[in-house]
Amino acid sequence: MPVAPATADTWRLWIDGTAAPNPGRIGLGVVLESPDGQRHENAVRATEGCNNVAELQALLHGLSLALDAGARAIAIYSDSDFVVRHVGGDGHTDVAPLEALVRRARTAMAAFAVATLHWIPRHRNGAADRLARQAIGLAPKPALRPVSRKRRR
């Protein structure tokens, strides 16, 4: 996967998937932002599976939406360490269904002239998380409270 800095024509994609229970019903959350700042939100109920399947399916769904919208350069943001490591080539799984989804995701990313995959902390992926939970009828998670940096004495 080519790694290059974001340019004026780079689309941005935030993805999240959830399974409830785990494994269970799967919800996918996708936020696609065009270079001019237009945001498209998508919540999809998918088949059953585990959280890692949900995260990979969210990536595949988001990449499909981006291609359909005409994106050629894309920066992808996920709070899933599994997705970032495995699709990025730093992880390995012997679970056949997961390996098949990882291969599909790599193939889908190769359709872009530039595709970068970035891990972000969960609190920076709130919109995609909200959509994934909404897709299977779950309420949004409560907002994280800021951590105080004051020293205790």
Results as ranks from 00 to 15, higher is better:
R39K: 07
N51L: 09
A135Y: 12
A66K: 02
G126H: 05
T47H: 06
P5T: 03
A8M: 03
R145M: 14
E33F: 01
A132D: 11
D68G: 10
T10N: 05
M1R: 06
A54R: 10
R122L: 07
Q38D: 03
Q57C: 08
P23I: 09
E41C: 02
M109S: 00
D68T: 10
L28D: 03
P23E: 05
L63F: 01
S64N: 14
A75K: 00
G137D: 11
K150F: 14
A6D: 15
D36N: 06
R145E: 15
A100E: 13
G29L: 02
L67W: 09
T116V: 04
A132W: 11
L117T: 11
G24L: 06
R104L: 11
P121T: 09
G62S: 04
S64R: 14
R122A: 13
L56P: 00
L60R: 10
H118Y: 05
N125E: 11
A6Q: 13
V87H: 07
E48P: 00
R106E: 04
A20K: 11
L117I: 08
T47F: 08
I76L: 07
T18L: 02
T10G: 02
E55G: 07
A135G: 04
Y77T: 05
R145D: 14
R45F: 07
K141L: 15
L56C: 03
N42D: 12
G62D: 05
L131F: 11
G17Q: 03
A110P: 00
R124S: 10
S34G: 01
D94S: 13
S80A: 11
R151A: 15
R72I: 01
R12E: 14
A20T: 13
D9L: 06
H118C: 06
L67G: 08
E41P: 00
L144D: 14
A43Q: 08
G88Y: 07
S80I: 06
N22R: 04
R25T: 09
W119V: 02
L138W: 07
A143Y: 13
A6F: 01
A58Q: 04
C50L: 02
A20E: 14
T116A: 05
D90V: 00
G89Q: 12
A71E: 07
S148W: 14
